[in-house]
Amino acid sequence: MARSTTTKSKVIVTIGAWLVGFLIFFPILWIFLMSFHTEGDAIKSPFAMLASPWTTEAYQAVQTQNSYGKFFMNSVVISVGSTVLALIIGIPAAWSMAFVPGKRTKDLLMWMLSTKMMPAVGVLIPLYLGFKVTGLLDTRTGLVAIGTLINLPIVIWMLYTYFKEIPVEILEAARMDGASLSSEILYVLTPMALPGIASTMLLNVILSWNEAFWSLQLTTSDAAPLTQFIASFSAPEGLFYAKLSAASTMAIAPILIMGWFSQKQLVRGLTFGAVK
């Protein structure tokens, strides 16, 4: 008796949960479906569109007419570049704060975090004018620099919470066993720290890929990443639904896949360790 009621409730919950999941995911599914139809079919009613023949026309059009590849490469360079730079600067900092904490370590961490809370418009004008004067406007270098600084606090915080979990006793045990400093770092610390570094990297690439304030303000064409390219569809000419769908699908697919792998780290990274 008890078993049959739980099975029944499980069926109901399953239907409800799948329905909600489907509805939330639907817009993404819809642009995916739309991207495989012609511009003319894309503006038809939903069922008429689904019934019309499938084609990869829109993908080809986006590649040839809009040179999609350039924007994609800019996105890759900017998001990976700024993340790697932030890691290079942030790893030693997080490392020393986690293992050699001083009296001011906590204040320092809080201060670093507070830089994330500064609204971008508060520093927009000096940066824009500075970029203009130095010729950094619409360059990848400029955006990588900004991205690094935006990422840095999150990188340090995430790494700090990961490094904190590495027990110091293990290091001491290795030292007692006569491990040299270099073998201690290479064989004991690195294997334990790598998963944390990897997930920090993943989350920050995702965040930089989707960053859409500075990339919209500081780029126009040469260094424009996908956020800016997609924004150009806000004032299009002629029919563009299929092209926008194709471009959007390609822009979000890699990040969606990476994001699904980093679910757990997402919570940790974005709540600064407050929820695990």
């Binding site: 909600v20 817009p27 819809w30 989707n210 859409a212 924004a231 806000s234 822009a251 979000i252 994001g259």
Partner: peptide
């Protein structure tokens, strides 16, 4: 996976879609 997907969509894409 379905429910968290929108979070990974870049703001310009979700707004324009």
């Amino acid at each position: 996976v379905l429910v968290i997907a929108p979070f990974f969509v870049m703001p310009t894409v979700s707004a324009l879609v």
